[in-house]
Design a protein around this nucleic acid. Structure first.
Lengths: 220, 220
DNA sequence: ACAAAAGTGTTGGTTTTACACCCATGG
DNA sequence: CCATGGGTGTAAAACCAACACTTTTGT
């Protein structure tokens, strides 16, 4: 008999950094240490539903606004000192959330830059690493980068997502051609913005594309 | 409290078909129906270890000979009528196994062509579908196709793997150039074979490559 | 000699890359 | 007018698909 938890790697981009949502644990074990948000799967709840519920509880965001997918399961004996626990980890990608969490279930949730994360409770460092790696890989051949942007965004904002997640600069001109040329990736809204300075940039919404053909070249 | 099982999608290529290992269930529920092999994770056993153990019990193959990776977890309430069960599914890719299983734990294991699989116990049809889809996708950008081949294989045998898994013919000339040109993918043994007829083909072993750059084009 | 399969060369078209250049706004 | 970023054009290089052609075996 095992306990089963759903833990979340929630990534977003805040102030030009790739950040992950962490909570301070209020209970033993690992009291007062940083951990990924999550909690026990309820007896009559599907795994995906548990992850979506935890996500809503921690961030206030409903699925539909954020991308949520299963990442993998972790169940080494002894990873929780109390009892045998199997964690089903989920990866969530969210746009920059306007309000920090307050008054919700997890009053101590905080966004932490991925590069600045120290040691975490349980095996959560491994899970975080796997989540970041998954995100990096999926940007290459899926339209997932748009999940980090708001409902309307410019090509430059989308490019910044790639640059921050990959830690690599991309040519703005070629990037522009690539994403505007990909079928069903971007839907122009017809409006423009000057929030990035310079010449007004066209605004886009996510299109219906489920894959990116051809993929975004990563290493060249 | 949940029961946790490790179930296996074991794929191989037999008599020019992509096949999956299935077992006849000997117990309720779903007695006498086809199911994926698998079993309960033991109280002091890691998930990966449980999958490796089940694989050895069902096929007699040790890890190292076969590729084994976690596929995903399935835990809808009611997927097992008796109790709440979460299954951690694993995907295994094996070369054609010389001996059919006999005298082992699962005397009723059989290889079934993936296209000829009917309905399966539990949600195993879904799991099988996800496993096949994963295998198809990974052939594109990893050296995983070599996991279907024996220790030594020809370029044509490797190409046949792609053709069977993808259900699509590939140009032998361009395929040859591609795989022999990919860095660290193939290590020539220096020997040749005529087992495919015609001019002798060079034999290769798997190289150290962990990715396929550039990827094998699938749809073109 | 012939069939069959391995392997190499060539060619034309597409994609990528790097960069020059123009456009539209705020200050 | 100038700085800043948005967006287009273009030429060299790399890549890919298609297929002609040569090599090496078994029969």
């Amino acid at each position: 008999m095992f306990a089963v938890t759903a833990d979340l790697v929630v990534l977003t981009i805040r102030s030009d950094r790739l950040c992950v949502l962490l909570v301070r644990r209020g209970e033993e074990p690992y009291r007062d240490e940083w951990a990924l948000p999550g909690g026990f799967v309820r007896p009559d709840e599907d795994l995906d539903a548990a992850a979506a519920r935890e996500l809503a509880e921690e961030t206030g965001l409903a699925v539909g606004t954020v991308h949520l997918e299963q990442l993998g399961s972790y169940g080494a004996p002894g990873r929780d000192p109390r009892q045998r626990v199997v964690t089903v980890a989920y990866l969530a990608l969210a746009p920059d959330l306007p309000a920090p969490e307050a008054g919700t279930d997890a009053a101590f949730a905080e966004w932490v830059a991925v590069g600045a994360v120290g040691s975490l409770a349980f095996d959560h460092e491994v899970i975080l690493g796997d989540g970041v790696e998954r995100a990096r890989a999926k940007l290459e051949y899926t339209p997932l980068a748009t999940a980090f942007c708001g409902a309307e965004f410019t090509v430059a904002e989308l490019r910044r997502v790639y640059e921050l997640v990959w830690g690599k600069e991309l040519d703005p001109r070629n990037f522009h051609r690539k994403v505007t040329g990909a079928a069903d990736l971007l839907v122009p809204t017809g409006t423009t913005t000057t929030r990035d300075g310079g010449r007004p940039a066209r605004l886009y919404r996510r299109g219906a594309a489920v894959a990116l053909h051809p993929p975004m070249p990563r290493s060249g």
